[in-house]
Design a binder for these strands. Structure first.
Length: 337
DNA sequence: CGGTTTTGACCGGCGC
DNA sequence: GCGCCGGTCAAAACCG
């Protein structure tokens, strides 16, 4: 296996993250974000925290079932995460000397860099599409590599996230995607399945990835077939972490990227062929460390149909959330700026 | 027409 | 100082 940043790769299991600390510091942990959001939305409603945690866990598992930032973080630290110091941010349990101010945390995140190795599908398709919109700004042929490296930048003007994509020399069906920087944007609708994004005056081009990358529909065929993806995240020193490959979803659940709008969407098999998924808008701090690729498909069913029904989030949780709430954006922005 | 891709040029870091 | 290399810039081409 070839290496990024010149160190050996050793696969380890993603350690179970410690229970999230309370929200006394800036965080990108989806669970903590959700906790913050609900805290605000509930207007400091008192209640048994344990019960609320349980409900939140259900809610979170509805929309997110992949490794959390803490997972990645822990994994990187376990594998000698090194000078890029992925361990510092969102480590509110760190002792004296730990980064605490948003500025420091942000700086730490800005320096962050990690690599995913993505096995593409046998037919040449891949999962290198990660839910963000990227603009290619350069391509270079790399010494000792027959494959060029492509450079992408997040299309969001206030976002400095970048990524590099190149095909592995040893494994032609593997893409090496190196993410760098922080997505300084967040859309709450990322969590929502039932909210249509605002109509876009111009449809973004799909070719955000290398030219050979079609947008992937990760349906049951792919998930159950031999081309099931193995995704390996590689820390700053190149120590690889086996992230859970997309697990076969329950019978009715699938995960895909919308062929039309280049956004991930969940849908069930009943509407599988309608391609009328609900949308989740691009962007989000979560994806900075946990691209959608790393996530497993929803383990609870989400439903869509001809654009009128909404996924039954409330079915797995009694927590309600007004989709128009600006809480996430405000929370993020107030901590960034 | 506006956004994206392509691609050669340019720049800075690094090793010799 | 020089050359190599990787990363970025920017103008032109492309595309819907």
């Amino acid at each position: 296996m070839e290496e990024e940043e010149g160190s050996s790769t050793s696969s380890v299991a993603v350690p179970v993250p410690p229970p999230p600390n309370k929200y006394d510091s800036w965080t990108t942990d989806p669970e903590e974000l959700m906790m913050m959001m609900v805290d605000e939305a509930a207007v400091q409603q008192e209640g048994p925290r344990r019960r609320r945690d349980s409900m939140l866990n259900k809610l979170i598992s509805t929309v997110y079932s992949g490794p959390t930032i803490s997972d990645i973080e822990s994994a990187l630290s376990f594998t000698g995460g090194g000078d890029v110091d992925a361990r510092n941010y969102n480590n509110s349990s760190a002792g004296p000397g730990a980064l605490s101010s948003p500025e420091k945390v942000l700086m730490s995140k800005m320096e962050n860099k990690y690599t995913l190795k993505i096995k593409t599908c046998g037919n040449g398709s891949s999962l290198a599409e990660d839910g963000y919109k990227w603009r290619k700004y350069g391509q270079k042929s790399i010494k000792n590599s027959p494959n060029p490296r492509s450079y992408y930048r997040c299309t969001n003007p206030r976002c400095n996230a970048k990524k590099q994509v190149e095909r592995s020399t040893d494994e032609p069906d593997t893409l090496v995607v190196t993410y760098e920087g922080l997505h300084l944007h967040y859309t709450y609708s990322h969590f929502l399945h039932h909210q249509q994004p605002p109509p876009q005056p111009k449809k973004p081009k799909l070719g955000a990835g290398p030219p050979q990358q079609p947008i992937v529909v990760m349906d049951d065929d792919l998930l159950h077939g031999p081309a099931q993806q193995d995704i390996i995240t590689t820390g700053p020193l190149g120590a690889a972490v086996m992230a859970p490959a997309p697990a076969p979803p329950p019978a009715a659940a699938s995960f895909c990227y919308d062929l039309d709008d280049d956004v991930p969407a969940f849908f069930d098999d009943h509407d599988h062929h309608h391609h009328q998924q609900q949308h989740i808008t691009n962007g989000g701090l979560l994806e900075d460390m946990v691209p959608l690729l790393v996530r497993r498909p929803c383990t609870t069913t989400t439903t869509t149909s001809a654009g009128s029904t909404s996924p039954d989030l409330s079915a797995s949780s009694s927590v309600s959330w007004n989709p128009t709430s600006p809480y996430i954006d405000m929370a993020i922005l107030s901590n960034i700026f």
